[in-house]
Amino acid sequence: MNIYLFCQNKNYFSKNQVKAMKKAGRVIFVEGINPIGVCKKLIADKSNKIVAIDPDVCLWKLTNKEIESIPNLKAIIIQSTSFSWIDTDFCRIKKITVINTRDYCTNAVTEWLLMMTLMVARKLPTVYKDGWKVDFNRHLGMELHGKTAGIIGVGTIGTRVAQVMTAMGMKVVYWSKHDHGSIYDQTTLTKLFKTADFIYPCLAKNNETKKIIKMKHLRTMKKTASIICAAPQPALFDKETVLKLVAKNKINGFGFESGGDTRKLMEEARGNTLVTPELAWYSKETLITNAKKWSKNIIAAAKNKYPDMVNP
C-alpha cells in the first residue's frame, strides 16, 4: 500500500512513528502548502493508495474533482477532527473511507475557553479598548462561582468544559440531541439560552449543525449572559447578531476565535467582545498527541482498518 503523506514538515513525526508507518506501506512525503492536484506523482500512480493530509497544506479545501483524479484511492486520513471541508458523502459513493483524528486537543481547547471566559467575565476586552485606564463604572466584572454554564453538545470537548466549569463552582446544564445519562442537567435549547450565564457551543460543524442556534435563541439571552466559543463554532449561529447584541449592551459579552485580522476585529467590535487568533488547539502537548494519533490512524488504514471512520 502506498501512503502519500501531505504535511508541512515530515519532522512533525518522531523517528519511531515514521519507522512504524514505513513498515505498514511505502511512505511518500509531500511537504509544503499546495493543492493536492499539483502532485503529479500521486495522479500518475495507479497502485492502491491512501492519502494522509494536514488540512493546512490544502488550505482546508479538498474538492471532489481532486479526489476523483486520484486513481485507486482507498482512504483519506485527515490530521484534524473537523472534516466539513471534505464531501464525505461523495467519498462514500466512491467507496473512499474518510478518517479523522480525534481527541488530541481537548485540554488545550478547554483551557482556552476558560481563559476567554475569565477575560469576558472580568471585562478585559472593555478595559483594553479603554486604553487600560480603570473605569469603575464600565469595568465591573463578575465571578464565575455560582453562575450557570450552558453547554451545547457534550462530546469530548463539551464534557471536559463541563468538568472544568464545575470545578470553578458553576452549575452546568447542557443540550444534546441524545440523553447521555450525564450527571449534569439536560435541558432544551430554548431554556438553556434563557437561563445560562455563559453559553458554550461545542458541536462539530456540519450540515446538520450549521446555524442550529436560531435568532429566537439569541434574543432571549439574559443581559448578563455571554457566549464563549472556539473555531469553528461561530458557524453554528449568526455571529453578526451576537456582535450587535453586545454593542447595544443587550448581553454581557462575546468571546470567539477568528482566522482574520484579530486586532482589527477586536478594535472594531463595540462592547465587551474578545477576539483571539485560532490558537485554542495549539499547545506542545497537542502536537505530540496529534502526531501519535494521526500516525496510528495512517498505519491502521494501510492495513484496511478504519477505527475513526466518519463516512460508514
Rank of each mutant, 00 (worst) to 15 (best):
T81P: 00
D56I: 07
E66I: 01
N64Y: 07
S82F: 00
I53H: 11
A52N: 01
T81S: 12
S47Y: 05
N72Q: 14
K65A: 05
I50W: 15
K74T: 02
K49V: 10
I77W: 10
I70T: 08
K61C: 02
K65P: 03
V57T: 15
K65H: 12
D56P: 04
I77T: 12
E68H: 11
I78H: 05
C58D: 08
L59H: 15
E68Y: 08
I67G: 00
L62I: 08
L62Y: 10
T81E: 12
I77P: 13
L73R: 09
S80E: 12
W60V: 01
D56M: 12
E68W: 01
V51T: 05
I70N: 09
T81L: 13
I78M: 08
N48K: 15
I76M: 04
P55G: 12
S47N: 15
K61P: 04
W85I: 00
Q79P: 04
K74W: 02
K74P: 00
N48L: 06
N48E: 15
N64Q: 01
K61S: 10
C58T: 13
I77S: 03
I50R: 03
D54E: 11
I76K: 01
L73M: 11
L62M: 04
I50Y: 13
S47A: 07
N48Q: 12
W85N: 09
I70Q: 10
I67M: 00
V51D: 07
W60T: 09
A75W: 06
A75H: 06
D56Y: 12
S69P: 08
W60H: 14
K74H: 07
K61L: 00
I67E: 01
P71W: 02
I78N: 11
P71A: 13
I53W: 06
K49N: 12
K74Q: 13
S47T: 13
F83N: 03
P55K: 10
S69Q: 12
K65N: 10
E66P: 09
I76R: 07
K61N: 02
S84Y: 03
D56R: 05
I78K: 06
S82T: 11
S80M: 09
F83P: 08
I77N: 03
T63D: 04
D54I: 11
Q79M: 13
Q79T: 00
I77D: 11
I50H: 06
W85R: 06
S69H: 12
N72H: 09
T63N: 01
L73Y: 03
I78T: 14
Q79D: 06
D56L: 15
C58M: 09
S69F: 04
Q79K: 15
N64I: 02
S69G: 11
W85H: 10
W60F: 13
D54L: 14
L59E: 15
S69I: 00
T81R: 10
I70V: 09
I78P: 02
S47H: 11
A75N: 02
Q79A: 15
N64A: 06
I70L: 11
I76G: 00
N72Y: 00
N64T: 05
K49A: 05
T63A: 13
D54Q: 14
W60Q: 04
K74I: 00
F83K: 10
S84P: 00
K61E: 07
S84D: 15
E66S: 02
E66Q: 10
N48W: 03
V51Q: 09
